[in-house]
Nucleic acid binder design. Sequence first.
RNA 1: GUGGCUAUGGUGUAGUGGUUAACACAGCGGUUUGUGGUACCGUUAACUCGAGUUCAAUUCUCGAUAGCCACCCCA
Length: 508
Amino acid sequence: MARPKKKIDNKMDNKEKEIKKAKKAKKEILTVTGMRDLLPQDQKYWESVIKVGKKIANDYGYGKIDTPIVEYMDVFERGIGKQTDIVEKEMYTFIDQGGDELTLRPENTASVVRAYIQHGMINQTQPVKLYYYGPMFRHEKPQSGRYRQLYQFGFEAIGEISPALDAQLILMGWNILNDLGIESVIQVNSIGCTSCREEYKKALVKYYKSKGKDLCESCQKRLVKNPMRLLDCKEEGCEKLKIEAPQILDYLDEDCKKHFMKVIEYLDELDLPYVLNAQVVRGLDYYSKTIFEYWSADDSEGKTALGGGGRYDSLVGVLGGRQETPACGLSMGMDRIVAKLREKEIEVPEVYQPEVFVAQLGDAAKKKAFVMYEKLRRKGFKMSQAFYKDSLKAQLEIANKLKVKFTLIIGQKEIGEDTVLVRDMDGGIQEIVAYNKIENEMVKRMDKWRGEKLDKFTVDESDSSLPKPKKQKSDFGDFTSNEENDFEDKRSGKYDNMMDYGNDIDVY
RNA sequence: GUGGCUAUGGUGUAGUGGUUAACACAGCGGUUUGUGGUACCGUUAACUCGAGUUCAAUUCUCGAUAGCCACCCCA
């Protein structure tokens, strides 16, 4: 008796075919190339990165700033540099109805500096320390770890020249990765200030011109356009030439050299895993002196850097602020960090883990369950339900999938007796509790259960003091316990006004 | 932007120049309506799009699109 539909007659078949064709003719609507949806099941990774990033921001005194996603094209063209790939061919720029030339931000440093200037932040205590996270847009060819809408979490400290700042930012980025359970190696370099760079470029061009014939095609172009990039080339011939090429470090003036030495001293003091890497040359024009990248410990070529940053002492001036306003920044590639968390199978806390499920049977019970649900929810319990389902079986299935600890059942019998059935989902043991005592009973049970969980956690930690293997837990201890505190507070009535609820973690 | 590889239900995979495109997981429904995690049964759901070759194309060819990879660059 299979498929009676298809057994009818040819006319029907033809009709079906037509319908099918028509369906196909409607072109499926997809995301724009290189852009993607972050679905509910993806969110826990993003929220974890944001959580850790925010913690680091707070720990080092950075305040959050949100700048518009759209800016005047000028901000980036002047800020990032006209000759850079980003500005030359990767920006989403359009003319709006009012005739203004606007751009979707390809990165956020220029915007933050624009805000610094616009709001006269030069009059605040320097450095002004800001952090942000959100989407950036670059029209690149997508491949793994490369998207046209990409997310960055970044820090900018404007108005301070001390090398301690560089070192601290380097530390902060490393801390984010480390707190998430990702091993990384810092690649540091100094490209000096504008004047030493000019000297160096001359030397570089002179050196490469003397070897002109051995250069690959694209390097010939680089020689004229952007000699610093010669060092990035991976062609065999050019690779050989690199070995004897002049090193930027030899061309630093006294000041830049001293600055860089200081940064390195701090890194040594902090015992951070870093490598001096003269090949690291960042692609944005505004960088000067210290530049750095974070490479995953298992990525020796830095194919997909997890983050990077550096000093940009001239950017504020370039964008029309006071000349000689030094600054340093850092940005982490959230997409790549999330990919790494997944690749390494690093466990990350759930966005929301309900603990108590309310099930009901029958009309009267449903009403009572609604009320009880609200009572417990307002007490601060993490609740879940499926009031739109009628069968108990279906509700328990959902409770099971949600991995709740307890299910509270109200049916005809419980209505009559004015009780609630408390089911422990781990053992399936059920107990009858008087309806008016349910809140206290649940507080007691949850406390006990949380206590047991904590014990387990402590044991786990002592076990994982060694280098972390696969399937490890990331270092979230501090935050999760914060949440527990929240819970305590809510229950003791501090949050009874319910104002504190929204979850302010958004990736827009 | 340049080059290479790939494209089958929601997901992961089979398979074929011809009639009914297979399997697993997930989803939904059920195994006498008050009990989940296991089992069994049923059910929904796919050949990326367009053109060409052919009596016949999901299968072969070309193009488009998308994804992956490399270059370039970056996070």
